[in-house]
Structure formats: structure tokens, C-alpha cells
Design a binder for these strands. Structure first.
Lengths: 191, 191
DNA sequence: CGCGACGTTGATTTGCCTCAACGATTGTGG
DNA sequence: CCACAATCGTTGAGGCAAATCAACGTCGCG
């Protein structure tokens, strides 16, 4: 298994000794999933954080009416889990599944706690990851509150060009909080 | 100045030696603000993170049309800043001002960096703070995507009863992403 | 006391949804 | 490798949630 992309990703924020990165890698397990395979089912207790080495995942919330509301896409180099369930221990609200065949590195919550103790630098690493995640979610809230659907769509195209290549339009509609039909109307206007 | 509420808040997540908490407190400066006073103006470079010791702040985004979209309320024991600007160094998108006379403890970005170096435990502390902030924002996105305005309002009443006591309805409407007029319609129905 | 912010009401408009239908792909089992 | 089914993207008619605009009484504050 080639962990170079993960190690490069980590190296952007903290510097590790060889022994530290070895220890870190020893805590991970590799999971290969096929398209549509479910990594986390709504209602389960989420004890795993996933790093996408290759492929594409998504996380969605299913509401009372059964609609899927897409909360995030996760391409290569992204961390994804139900952080609410992961931190609180409560049943997860989200389902995480694979948009295409993917290679995932998994870290158990108990192992993450050990990692924090053995290599406190990872507190810094995940502090930065969480901080960025917080900022991203807040920017999304700002967009949702202040912009109409058409602008949110254009902004999405600019912000996540890679996602656009991997994901059908109806899922982008769901992420934007609109129906596929209405996205279609928007797209026609822009042409 | 009585820092006990801040120290109790910190102690929920990390244990500090006396020398460590003394150092931490030495980095803070106290700012007393009056109702309507601005702590951070949109467009400024945000280099301060604020802890609300007493009172109430809010952060809002002003869109092209000039509408205020309230991003967060911050009561006692909350941290508030424009985290986007704080971390990226870019001009802030948010304005932060006081909803009532308040006592704020301020920490400069450079001092926070020093704090991380001198007392690495604070990496853990802010990792947890950021993680919680991330989860909160994600839950808000889920609500905004999946629930109609009336349910979001009811849910807000349950989740932030203290805010309701401090804040006029039109600001709650803005937080919920609806107009004051429509909130009024919702409230009439519930009676 | 007077003025501006607030909360409310009603009439009208609009952004987006629902439902139904349709070709065009995609993918899958035989 | 084909045939059929499922998913996708799109179009249109009709409907609803929420916005806009205007008006009004109330209240806290200067």
C-alpha cells in the first residue's frame, strides 16, 4: 500500500519523525469499496474516520420524507465521517457511501485517542483540519442564506470543478438544496 | 478581572498547571463594549479571537442587496471571530458587533501561536472547540436543507432559549433565513 | 415628548417545488 | 454482446412556501 498521498497531506501541517509516521500508519486499515457500497449507515454508532485515498464518497442526510440531502462530497485527500456521531457517541444522522470504486484509509476513534497521546502533534493536525472544515461549513451557510440557487450553482462549479466531473447533476442539485428539475431550468438559462 | 468563567470553560477540556493558566491569561486583553459597538468590521483583516465573558455578540454577513444575514449569536462562554479571515489572512466577510453591553476577552493571533508553542495542550483545546463548531455548522446546514421555516423556528427555540431572551425577533428571522414578516406568520399559527 | 425600531397584518408576487412525461445514457443480467 | 431496465437530464403545467411592499399600533429610548 502506498501511503505517500496521505503523508504528503499530513506534512502540509505538521512535521513527523519516521517513527511517528510509522506509528500513525500502523493505526490505519485499508478498505476498498465498490460504487454504491455503504461505509456508514444512518443510525449506526460512528467510530471511524475515513480518509479518501482514491475515489469519491458522499455523505447525506435522509429526512422524514425520504429525501436525500447531500451534506458533503469527499474526493481524494478528504477526511469524511459523521463528526456529530463520532464525537458525541450518538447514532449517526448521516449515511456515507461510495460514488465510485474507492480506496479508503480508516482510523478508529480509540486509535485516534491513542495517537493524540503518543504523538500530540496530531492534535495540531486535526485542529487545523477541523478549523478548515468549520470555515467551509460557515461559508456554505453564508451562501445558502444570501444567494439564490443560480448563483450557488455557478459558485459550486468554480469551487468544486473536480466534483462536477465525478457526480451526476441530481446530486449537485441536492447539495445545493434544490430539485434536479429546477437545476435543469437554471442550466438552460446559462446557455 | 475575574477569569473564573473562562478558566472553568477551559478546564472542561484540558487540565492546566497554575503557570500555564497564568501564561494564558497574560495573553488576553479585556475589552468592554457598549450595545451596537462594532468589534470587527467587514473588510478588515481579522487578527483577534473573542471570548464572550458577559453579554451578547452577533456576527453577520451583509450581501449585495445590503441584507444582514446573521451567522451566529455569541452569548457568555462562546468564542467568536471571523474564522475565515483569521486563518486565511484575507479581509473579513463578517461584521461582529454587540447586541448589549458586554465584556470580551481578546486573544491576538500572534499570541495564540505563541500559546500553541508554549502550551501545546491548547492545540487540543481548540481542536475540540473547532470540532464542536464544525458539528454545529453542519447540523445547521442539515436543518436548513431539510426542514421548512416553521420547524427551524421551533427547533431554534429549544436549542437556544437564552438567545431568544436577548435578541429581537427580526434577528432570529435573519438567522433562520426568513423575513421578519414571515416569522410573524409562523408565530401566529403556533398560538 | 417625539422618533425610530419593532412586531404585526394583508395583498400581491416570485422562486422554487411537485408531478407527469419523454428521450438518451448507462449498466446489467441472460 | 445484446436486450431490457434503471437512472439521468430535461421539459411543461400547476401549486405552494416564502418574499416583497405598504401600512399601522406599540414601545423603549434619547
Amino acid at each position: 500500500m502506498d501511503y505517500s498521498s496521505l503523508l504528503q497531506h499530513v506534512a502540509k501541517h505538521i512535521q513527523l519523525e519516521k517513527s511517528e509516521s510509522d506509528y500513525f500508519l500502523s493505526l490505519l486499515s485499508v478498505k476498498e469499496v465498490r460504487r454504491k457500497e455503504v461505509l456508514l449507515q444512518e443510525g449506526q454508532h460512528c467510530t471511524i474516520i475515513n480518509y479518501v485515498q482514491q475515489g469519491a464518497l458522499r455523505a447525506y442526510y435522509r429526512d422524514k420524507e425520504g429525501n436525500q440531502n447531500i451534506i458533503m462530497f469527499a474526493l481524494s485527500d478528504w477526511w469524511v465521517t459523521d463528526m456529530y456521531s463520532f464525537t458525541s457517541g450518538k447514532p449517526s444522522m448521516l449515511t456515507v457511501d461510495a460514488l465510485e470504486d474507492s480506496v479508503i484509509l480508516q482510523l478508529q476513534k480509540v486509535d485516534l485517542e491513542k495517537l493524540y497521546q503518543q504523538v500530540p502533534k496530531f492534535e495540531r493536525f486535526f485542529r487545523i483540519i477541523m478549523q478548515n472544515a468549520y470555515v467551509r461549513e460557515q461559508l456554505r451557510i453564508i451562501e445558502n442564506l444570501s444567494k439564490p440557487a443560480e448563483e450557488r450553482y455557478k459558485s459550486f462549479l468554480v469551487k468544486y470543478p473536480l466534483v462536477v466531473q465525478h457526480v451526476p447533476l441530481k446530486q449537485i442539485a441536492s447539495y445545493l438544496g434544490i430539485t434536479p428539475e429546477f437545476l435543469s431550468v437554471i442550466r438552460k438559462k446559462s446557455k
